[in-house]
Design a protein around this nucleic acid. Sequence first.
DNA 1: GATAAGATGTTA
DNA 2: AACATCTTATCA
Length: 183
Amino acid sequence: MKEQTVLDKSFFERDTIKVAKELLGSILVRKMGNKILKGIIVETEAYTQNDPACHAFKGRTKRAETLFKAPGLSYVYMIYGMYYCLNVVTEPFDTAGAVLIRALEPLDDIENTNGPGKLCKSLSINTSHNELDLCNEDSQICLFKGQKIPDKNIVKTVRIGIKHAADYPWRFYVKDNSFVSKK
DNA sequence: GATAAGATGTTA
DNA sequence: AACATCTTATCA
């Protein structure tokens, strides 16, 4: 097994949709004390500044401020008062954009993570993990390069859970992977 | 200060 | 299909 390396910051400083697609197959690493949990990213969604469904669409707010910051940071927010969602900030500084990590294929003894809320619950992610540097392998959460998923195994569909906004086909997941969130 | 809506998950 | 449940944003 070859040595694993963290994803470079420049990987995230690009078009959000490209990042969302290419993030499939990467390894999410969660460090909890001595324990290290890993999982393969199998489902993502892209959110950009011009997207009505993006938190930053109406400009800078206290919550969405992170989306305008440096690429490679984490963006954790609470939804529906009960669940957290983990995002990765994309695009250059001062440009909003993020990729929502919706599902993992567990590599360690992680509970099922087929959905953004359950993912964060299983990995004990909360708002204290907001704005971590995911490109720094010393962070509690970071991202390693993984296997590249062939295009033919990547499915592109409309996003989930968005009612008012246009349904852009910005959701990506690994074909035939049983850990992807259900319809 | 009050109100409405939300990038969800579970249950029936 | 309904609901649990609370933060955030947007008014007044």
